[in-house]
């Protein structure tokens, strides 16, 4: 395999890892605050649809992005209401949200656009277009560094760079701010946070809200950057892979980046079966590459390669003592 092909694979790795990363960090905020969220998939899907629909009708991708975030936040509000205010089962709420999104997006898309549950193709300003970083063309001829800069680092859409920035930002919020400290505490021992006079409910709603915003961006990326428009079930299990990446990363932001890049790399490889065969000289089953993230997660969960311990108060509704 030559250098340029490798760069191409890594380039599509970055593009495919972006939605995983955003959804994974979304889950990280929610779960670190003690709210399990298996509804990442549904929130992404709803955001993908509404961002695609609004971007198409308004012609502006930015309005689309905002609409996507709004759709995702609305579902987050349902999740918050069910799991924080009414102390319901967070897992069941997540399942309900996934189905709600899977059904509503198609029903509404059919009613608005009558194209079999999809939005029309997005073109021009209704999509996020690649951003050429400065000097990309000028530096292309510099050996090794030039192609890496021009092919791999430059030429992605706005959201890819945003996602990359979200990682250090998440780390900073989580470990260097008062809010982050309290948020982590509320996921481990909400009673202690309550005793200190900080609102458990408020913190958890804030975390669920951040989760909604990030899932919204991830969904908008699917419909307006990765592809040109919404199609039925376009999230295609990415929410669950993000969940797997979150466990793989043991709920830590930098490791979430590595896990998502790994899973993105597997997805990129699955798209190029010809290449794998050429390099390895034997055929690797495509299905195997597709399920590898899930198998790896089960192995990690089983604790055979370092144990993944979730936040201690995760999944437990907080009942204030009376």
């Amino acid at each position: 395999m030559d250098f340029l092909t490798l760069l191409q694979i890594l380039d599509s790795t970055v593009r495919l890892a972006t939605p995983l990363l955003l959804a994974c960090l979304a889950g990280l905020f929610s779960e670190r605050a003690g709210i399990f969220d298996i509804g990442l998939e549904g929130k992404m899907l709803a955001a993908a649809f509404l961002s695609g629909a609004v971007a198409y009708t308004s012609g502006s991708v930015w309005l689309g992005l905002l609409a996507g975030i709004a759709a995702s936040l609305a579902l987050s509000a349902v999740h918050g209401l069910a799991s924080i205010t009414f102390r319901g089962n967070q897992l069941i709420s997540g399942v309900a949200i996934n189905f709600l999104a899977a059904g509503l997006t198609v029903v509404v898309a059919q009613s608005w656009f009558a194209q079999g549950g999809r939005t029309p193709q997005l073109t021009g300003g209704a999509r996020f277009n690649p951003i050429e970083l400065p000097f990309a063309e000028a530096l292309r001829d510099v050996p090794v560094f030039g192609p890496i800069y021009a092919e791999l680092i430059s030429g992605h859409t706005f959201i890819v760079y945003l996602a990359a920035l979200t990682v250090p930002l998440t780390w900073w919020i989580l470990y260097r701010t008062r809010f982050g400290l309290r948020m982590r505490a509320v996921g481990e021992n909400p009673a202690a946070v309550d005793t200190a006079g900080v609102s458990v409910v408020g913190l958890r709603y804030a975390a669920v809200g951040i989760c909604g915003i990030l899932c919204g961006i991830a969904g908008a990326y699917l419909a307006t950057a990765l592809q040109a428009g919404f199609v039925k079930d376009m999230s295609a299990g990415r929410g669950y892979i993000a969940l797997a990446a979150l466990i793989f990363a043991k709920w830590r932001p930098w490791y979430a980046l590595y896990a998502c890049l790994l899973f993105g790399f597997l997805q990129a490889l699955a798209l190029r079966p010809d290449l794998i065969e050429r390099v390895l000289t034997f055929k690797v089953n495509g299905q195997l590459l597709d399920v590898l993230p899930y198998i790896l997660t089960v192995i990690i969960l089983a604790g055979f390669v370092g144990k993944a311990i979730p936040p201690r108060a995760g999944g437990e509704p907080y009942v204030k003592e009376r």
């Binding site: 069910a82 009414f86 102390r87 309900a96 949200i97 996934n98 709600l100 059904g103 029903v107 009613s111």
Partner: peptide, 25 residues
């Protein structure tokens, strides 16, 4: 009618939501 089959998934989601997660409500 022009109502797609996916409406059933919406109803299913609402049933799960109300009988499961929003039980307390």
């Amino acid at each position: 009618t022009s109502i797609p089959r996916e409406l059933i998934i919406v109803i299913q989601a609402l049933v799960i939501l109300f009988t499961g997660a929003l039980d307390q409500m």
